[in-house]
């Protein structure tokens, strides 16, 4: 199981733009490296990251905030920082998907004061 870190404020004012930082443990194996025996290491990457926000009371993952398609040129343990304009209380769903069935989900709550 991969370890992931999501950093964002717990509380925000309506209209405030907050910073969201995500970091996930993953080698992002490029497919261009060899192991100590000289055999090629197979490519294994996280291919897609998405962040959705659902206002409280709404079902489903909600609306897309930010998404990234990642390639071999992304560094190991991909870090992504982006922003969100707070409007109402709700929850974020963060999703990472990749090769060999890699899938990781994180949730975070945001409380918005009027």
């Amino acid at each position: 199981m991969a370890r992931a870190l999501v950093t964002l404020p717990k509380v925000a004012k309506a209209g405030e733009v907050i910073e969201i930082r995500t970091l996930i443990q993953h080698a992002m194996e490029t497919g261009y490296r060899r192991d100590s025996d000289g055999a090629m290491l197979p490519r294994s990457l996280i291919r897609r990251f998405t962040c959705h926000f659902a206002a409280s009371g709404k079902a489903g993952p909600g609306d897309l905030v930010f998404a990234t398609t990642l390639h071999a040129a992304m560094a190991a343990n991909p870090s992504l920082q982006f922003h969100f304009r707070a409007s109402s209380t709700g929850s974020f769903t963060f999703a990472w998907d990749g090769d060999d069935g890699f899938a990781h989900r994180e949730q975070a709550q945001l409380l918005v004061n009027a």
Binding site: L64, V65, A67, T68, F82, H83, F84, A86
Partner: peptide, 8 residues
């Protein structure tokens, strides 16, 4: 990267 107005 895909961005939406929600990103602010």
């Amino acid at each position: 990267f895909t961005l939406t107005p929600l990103a602010g």
